[in-house]
Amino acid sequence: MTPTVVFPVLVAGLYAAGVYLLLDRSLTRVLLGFLLLGNATNLLLLSTSRAGEPPIVGTAEPAEMADPLPQALVLTAIVITFGVSAFLLAVIHRSWRLVRREVVETDEEDRRVAARSPRQGDALDPDDLDPGDLSREERAVGRAVGGPGDDVEHRFGERFPDAASDDVDLPPTRGAAR
């Protein structure tokens, strides 16, 4: 088999895009990321085998046939990925029905543990704040970026005077923006 640059580039690109999407908070993007990662893995499996004639007895010499095993593995993997994606979609839909959000939810336990030991004098950590605590007007969601009067940080500073913040103006998620 002649080495080809197409497979590695394709697989690496799909993995990169998949990981990027998987890190998003919106569950639909996570699902898309998972699908890309699944396809990347299937291509990786396929690229491990020898290419050649269809592996059907009688149509070609066995030495010229493609290796059938990875194809069988990929078929199995595709079926599994398909089933799990369908289930994940159902769960995302259920999440949307329940709380009108399709995002990875805040870790309540983490917050409770943090709230249990408030150390006096600690500055408020902006990473602990949830953009969901802001009212709709205070969020940057759904507006043109950088327009006049869109100084979210300024308003945030008014609301939480002791927060030294610079990264809270990220829109929470696409899902909440709708």
Partner: peptide
């Protein structure tokens, strides 16, 4: 709601580990 919340974390993490496993199988082969 609590089960969906916990379940989503579990499902995504499990899926990721399965994909890693599958990629490892491909490389082993």
């Amino acid at each position: 709601a609590p089960r969906i919340r916990g379940g989503i974390t579990y499902i995504i993490v499990s899926l990721l580990s399965s994909l890693l496993f599958l990629a490892a199988i491909g490389l082993v082969y």
